[in-house]
């Protein structure tokens, strides 16, 4: 059955500020889901705390709005218990890379088949514009009384170090491209990380929609804006890492990865940066020990008969402890 965009929309009033990048991300998630052919009830979306945390309430799928920074472990537990669920986690840059940074690394190391969409606007919006972990050193957005004294963390570099196996970056106001990235991320087997650059029209007065669009730097000849955001794919960048590749080829790709993810300011690449097919998913690792794991999931396990008697047979375990 084909799904429509409306199948993934709730009636809940969306209360983000006008012009917020969240709208583009929400639409992209809903459109990506509609195109995936997975029933809404097989889909569970988890969110953290902050403006982005409300996303779950606007998507018609099981929606779990969790705690600040903890979206990934909640999502991990659900996916582990029912590996047949489609699990997407969403959250802000402060949520995921500040208070939740430990979980960001833990999830990457596991490589469970989930997709994490990070809404990156450089500020803590809902608490009125404090610097987030991604705001660059020396930037003074309007909620700050002085320039940011911390260097901003590079989410994609951190994701590489943590072990995510699909890394991409999108832009909130390039919806068609973002839909593709989310869809690719969901279809990827393993942990996918998608950083989405988004303006915060209320508190980030530096990295605005106009700034991303390059309105401040018109082409001297044509007078047209020269957008900062450009497509990685247009440069011929190949993100695929396969087991067949030589060490040299691997190093070449990782070198490109570092170079491209380090670009910021005048040119900001978006697209798929890495697809790593050289390692197993967490589900595969579990299945090696428990071959029936994905067929008889922990969540769906029948634990008692109709009278409530446990289905477990303790006798082999008790035999191990026997002393008579």
């Amino acid at each position: 059955m084909a799904y429509k965009l409306s199948d993934f929309k709730t009636e809940v009033h969306v209360d983000w500020c006008p012009g917020c990048g969240d709208y583009g991300i929400l639409s992209s998630i809903q459109m990506a889901l509609a195109g995936l052919n997975v029933p809404p009830q097989r889909t569970a979306i988890f969110s953290g705390i902050g403006c982005s945390g409300k996303t779950t309430h606007y998507v018609k799928a099981y929606g779990v709005h969790t705690l600040h920074g903890r979206v990934l472990p909640y999502a991990t537990g659900a996916k582990l218990a029912n590996p047949n669920l489609l699990v997407i986690a969403v959250g802000g840059d402060g949520d995921g890379l500040g208070i939740g940074a430990g979980h960001f690394i833990g999830a990457g190391r596991r490589n469970l088949d989930i997709t994490y969409v990070l809404f990156n606007n450089g500020v803590y919006g809902l608490t009125k514009g404090q610097a987030s972990p991604t705001l660059k050193l020396g930037m003074q957005t309007k909620g700050l009384s002085q320039p940011n004294p911390n260097e901003g963390v590079n989410p994609l570099m951190l994701a590489l170090a943590a072990g995510y196996t699909f890394m991409a970056r999108g832009y909130a106001f390039n919806v068609p491209e973002l839909v593709k990235l989310i869809r690719q991320g969901v279809e990827h087997h393993g942990s996918s990380f998608i950083e989405v650059l988004q303006p915060c029209p209320t508190y980030n007065n530096l990295n605005t929609r106009d700034w991303y669009g390059g309105l401040d730097r018109p082409d001297p000849e044509t007078g047209r804006a020269q957008p900062r955001v450009y497509s990685l794919a247009d440069t011929g960048y190949d993100p695929l890492l396969t087991p067949e590749m030589s060490e040299e080829q691997t190093h070449e790709l990782l070198g490109r990865y570092v170079a491209r993810t380090s670009e910021w300011g005048e040119r900001i690449p978006v697209g798929v940066f890495l697809i790593n097919r050289t390692t197993s998913t967490y589900e595969e690792r579990i299945s090696r020990r428990i071959p029936f794991y994905t067929q008889q999931t922990p969540a769906e396990r029948v634990i008692a008969d109709e009278a409530g008697r446990p289905t477990v047979d303790l006798s082999p375990l008790l035999a191990e402890l026997r002393v008579s």
């Binding site: 779990v64 903890r70 909640y74 991990t76 537990g77 430990g102 979980h103």
Partner: peptide, 18 residues
């Protein structure tokens, strides 16, 4: 990775029916 992840992962699993 920590106890916060432990309780939240267990909660996620409970929501899934485990």
């Amino acid at each position: 990775e920590d106890e916060i992840a432990a309780i939240t992962a267990a909660t996620g699993a409970a929501l899934a029916g485990a």
